[in-house]
Design a protein around this nucleic acid. Structure first.
Length: 400
RNA sequence: GGAGGGGUGGCCGAGCGGUCAAUGGCAGCAGACUGUAAAUCUGCCGACGAAAGUCUACGUAGGUUCAAAUCCUACCCCCUCCA
């Protein structure tokens, strides 16, 4: 049944680790193969900020993500379709994924979970109305009223033309009652079913649809949602929504969700991308991740480093803006073979950051992308050689 | 030579009798960042002190006031215009 719906896609699990649920596989798409576990980089507005497709490729990137929400507002899905679709538009011929726009519509109202908990970045909600039909929201560009429904989200994603697309869902905030979470969850399921219907209506076999598990931090709701997604004809399964306020809670939510989600479908964990998070996610059976974190911290002067180079045990990156790197002639990581580490010293990167030179962004983003891809490659290799647990120990991740 | 304007914390620049250790901005220091309205945001930023607080500060030197960065006098610099 699924092969009829997704004729050009396949998910193959080559190996599953004995001690955990970690698995080594690949997702076959019309634009190439994604070796899993994999990290997908965010190129929100059809660009991974600071990097050209050539540099992305040089950093061994497999897949990028773009946002339906941003692209529908600028330049518009019709424009992208007219100029040949997203792959041609952004000059990336590898696999691409688009998010449904659901997350942005809602998150723009209350910010991220971290912002919400810390009471930061309070904006007036852009969400005007949530109804059974869909969501009316205000464009962040000009304040005009726009609407996204499951049908329009799928149509827009169809026009944009990424390989992997996502069903339209509602993302509930952290400070949200169980009752509302459940109500939103039920509606999300109806929206996702409508997403599937809209998808089938225009299906040309070139795209594969992911369903999203919601349910906030509530065990039974996650189970219910996982069941719904698993029983629906989605190509892939994604875990979305609020995962918790602290890491331990997040890991628990992912774990209890995965308890009900394990199957022959690829599982994507939406929006998570810390190093430790990835080890935990992989061990729980997650196949793909996406996150703004590696590229965002790069723009803010953060370089991901191995354990031995950390300047604080709990921080996974070093902050090159710090004065202590001003005369440090060593590269970010002497063992890293990315172009940045091959030619630039920490002192130079520190200077570029202080002088606000755009090269700082490109150089640090390139390093972090390379770092993440290298990390995923190491994880894949470890899974193949049955030494994933050993790799976890090397990264001091023991709470699996 | 004449007329006018100005000298404020590392820099730019407000303040023009008390609530001023002195608004802002920049620079500096540190922190945050997890389905990207983020090359962003937050905090600190005269000295000593954990803090209360103490001291030194608004060109220099005096003065008037209970009280001055703010008023007066002289001096030293800078800038503009007229000769």
């Amino acid at each position: 049944m699924l092969s009829a719906l997704y004729p050009e896609f396949r998910f193959l699990v080559r190996k599953t680790e004995a001690a955990t649920r970690a698995r080594r596989g690949c997702i076959i798409t019309p634009h190439g193969v994604i070796e899993t576990p994999a990290f997908i980089f965010c190129g929100t507005k059809a660009s991974v900020k600071g990097l050209s497709p050539a540099l992305l490729k040089e950093a061994e990137t497999q897949c990028c993500l773009a946002n339906t929400y941003h692209l529908m507002l600028q330049p518009g899905a019709d424009t992208i379709q007219k100029v040949g679709g997203l792959h041609a538009f952004m000059g990336w011929n590898g696999p691409l994924l688009t998010d449904s726009g659901g997350f942005q519509v809602f998150s723009l109202g209350y910010g991220s979970v971290a912002d919400e908990i810390k009471g930061r970045r309070q904006r007036s909600s852009s969400v005007q109305q949530i109804s059974e039909k869909g969501v009316v929201f205000k464009s962040y560009l000009d304040g005009s009223l726009r609407e996204i429904t499951p049908e329009t989200s799928i149509q827009i994603q169809r026009k944009i033309g990424a390989d992997l697309v996502v069903a339209f869902d509602e993302c509930t905030p952290y400070h949200c009652s169980r009752a509302y979470t459940e109500q939103a969850l039920e509606r999300s399921h109806r929206w996702e079913t409508r997403s599937l219907d809209a998808f089938k209506a225009y299906n040309d076999g070139k795209q594969a649809l992911y369903g999203v598990v919601q349910g906030g931090v509530y065990v039974d709701l996650r189970e219910k949602s996982a069941r719904y997604v698993k029983e629906s004809p989605f190509f892939g399964h994604a875990i979305g929504g609020t995962l918790g306020a602290i890491k331990e809670e997040m890991y628990r939510v992912i774990e209890m969700t995965m308890n009900h989600l394990i199957s022959a479908h690829p599982v994507h964990l939406l929006g998570i991308g810390g190093i430790r998070d990835i080890f935990v996610g992989v061990s729980l059976g997650i196949d793909t991740f996406d996150c703004v974190h590696p590229t965002r911290i790069a723009r803010h002067g953060g370089a991901l480093v191995p354990i031995s180079l950390r300047d604080h045990p709990a921080r996974e990156h070093i902050s090159l803006k710090r004065a202590s790197y001003a005369e440090d002639s060593s590269p970010i990581d002497p063992t890293c073979s990315c172009a940045t580490c091959q030619q630039f010293s920490r002192a130079y990167l520190h200077h570029l950051l202080k002088a606000r030179e755009v090269l700082a962004i490109t150089a640090l983003t390139l390093h972090n992308v390379f770092f993440m891809n290298r990390l995923m490659e190491d994880i894949r290799a470890a899974l193949e050689k049955n030494c994933f647990t050993k790799l976890c120990h090397k990264w001091q991740v023991s709470d699996l």
